[in-house]
């Protein structure tokens, strides 16, 4: 088994094919999208491949240490050009093919007109633990 991080972006990913923002959708299209997302997580839980998923607020800032005894420096809110992560899902799957397959399914979430959004998702393998057998 190998763990993968699926990342969804608010900004920074290439534009999706069906690029109509959610606030322009009909109530039925919004409903279908939310239903799809709920079902996806439930399905992965029942297949034993779901580890964790969280959504992130678009708010945030950069923070860094500024020397002992001084408060950390902050910079924010994020500039409009910054790549911005919207949420993540960690999955534990048998192969990279399976991770790609699942990301593809997630990217097919319905959007405007009930058509798949074809949103770009980032798929990142976890660095694994060292092998148990020495060679």
């Amino acid at each position: 088994m190998a763990k993968y991080l699926l990342l969804k972006h608010y900004r920074g990913a290439p534009a999706p094919v069906n690029d109509v923002p959610m606030d322009q959708w009909t109530p039925e299209e919004v409903e279908a999208h939310i239903g799809f997302m709920n079902d996806f997580a439930t399905r992965l839980e029942s297949s034993g491949e779901f580890i964790d998923g969280q959504a992130l607020s678009p708010d945030g800032m950069w923070v860094r240490h500024d020397g002992d005894g001084r408060p950390p420096v902050t910079d924010g809110p994020f500039a409009e050009t910054k790549d911005l992560i919207a949420g993540w899902m960690v999955i534990d799957v048998d192969s990279e093919e399976r991770a790609i397959e699942l990301a593809g399914e997630l990217s097919a979430a319905p959007g405007a007109g009930g058509e798949p959004i074809h949103e770009w998702l980032e798929v990142r393998p976890f660095l694994a633990a060292p092998p148990a057998f020495d060679h």
Partner: peptide
């Protein structure tokens, strides 16, 4: 109102509230 519901969805403190405000935005836009 429609514009503010979109803002409300973006600034929602929980996923359930975000979904709720997105539904409201879609309803008013319609």
């Amino acid at each position: 109102a429609a514009r503010l519901y979109v803002d409300a969805a973006r600034n929602a403190p929980s996923l359930a509230e975000r979904d709720h405000q997105a539904r409201q935005a879609a309803r008013v836009n319609q």
